[in-house]
Design a protein around this nucleic acid. Structure first.
Lengths: 214, 214
DNA sequence: CCAACAATGTGATAACTGTCACACAATCGT
DNA sequence: ACGATTGTGTGACAGTTATCACATTGTTGG
């Protein structure tokens, strides 16, 4: 894979994720080849947008024909860096944390959860899978460091999120996905993404209100 | 509230949500007034951006002084349309659905969950709260219609999401927040927002990969 | 072998979003 | 009363992202 330029729009990455997700669901036997037109219809993106998105990274299609479904999926996975397993941990084994721990996605894609933490003494020691049992949050630094964990997913209440983030960073984490409804502060060297459910709902409320007012 | 223009950037709405969230956490007693500088620091947004965002909707501050904390919070809630309760339902009472049902956010903000659905016969009838027990998915149309539910949150597996969306729409739903990892299709009249956890993780993986490669 | 066709890749252009500088209004101290 | 100070509101500008048209390249049928 070659990266022509390093200024790729974030929206492009988001769409690539959509494409690869759809391609993965597609029966490759019945659809060995796919056009930007068809892919765009399924992903609700214009064909031109798809071609533009892909053009940032190279040429993956055949003119007059389309894209080899399986090959395109592999190429995008390579671009996104989900063609191998990222060692991942979940901190906060509440309902949301459990949902993520059970999430099939991780098994099929580029993420491997290898540790889980919680601050509730009642939960510590409980087995999640054969390999994972819940560890106390005090062990975060040590475990992240020892097991070379790259990604931390924070699913604690807001009040704990910053402390957890600090511990992850102390342990040498590379990236954090934060579900807590608060903006945690991290050094520039750490990649941080926030998932704000409240924000999404607020957005929905706004759009509904707009429609009502218009 | 006056809307000067109807072309508000989506990013602005997302940030407004952040602002109001932060303002809500702030002790108004100790901080009766706040400047765009301070608010920006907390929300990790530039002061100019905050003022620009607010300027789309009117003038809420006092020059040389700042913003009345409580008043600004109320104004933004009014803009977003979360100053009243939206009747909401959750479909799919797995771990993620349960997380949302227990989520404090709803109680404090503009959303009131008044029904929950699942397709698992073993779950149907189980009480969530005094008011809510789990209903079969077959009852979605009727319940949404009767209770005038505005917002549906889909937390089912991917395979069920489109069917659930169709039922919600048949019942007269206004907006859908979709957590299922698939793009559901809805008519233009329905507001749809997707929360894609996979997409966020893919994005994280991409950024980590970039850093490694650079 | 060549013409008709199909679908990609991309430069040019338009639309959108964020940044910046500064005019302006309110307050405070003397 | 008034100059100094503070922090908002906004027009102009810069940067970014999406759209469009079409040149390009491979395929297929006669």
């Amino acid at each position: 894979m070659k990266t022509k330029d390093n200024k790729i729009p974030e929206a492009t990455i988001k769409r690539l994720s959509t494409y690869v997700n759809y391609l993965g669901r597609l029966g490759t036997d019945s659809n060995p080849v796919i056009s930007s037109e068809i892919l765009g219809e399924s992903c609700q993106v214009s064909p031109a947008q798809i071609r533009k998105d892909l053009s940032y990274f190279g040429e993956f299609g055949v003119r007059g024909v389309g894209y080899d479904t399986k090959k395109l999926e592999a190429e995008i996975k390579d671009i996104l860096g989900i063609n191998h397993s990222w060692p991942t941990t979940v901190i906060g084994v509440g309902k949301l944390g459990q949902a993520l721990l059970n999430f099939d996605f991780f098994r099929n894609h580029g993420f491997r959860i290898i540790a889980a933490f919680d601050s509730d003494p009642g939960k510590i020691g409980a087995r999640i899978t054969d390999e994972i049992s819940i560890l106390p949050t005090g062990d975060i630094e040590k475990t992240v460091n020892e097991k070379q964990i790259s990604i931390g997913i924070i699913t604690t209440p807001a009040d704990w999120a910053q402390d957890v983030a600090d511990r992850l960073i102390a342990g040498g984490i590379k990236g954090i996905l934060n579900f807590a409804p608060i903006k945690v502060k991290v050094p520039d060297s750490i990649i941080l993404r926030n998932v704000s459910i409240t924000s999404e709902l607020d957005n929905l409320a706004y759009l509904l209100t707009q429609k009502k007012r218009q």
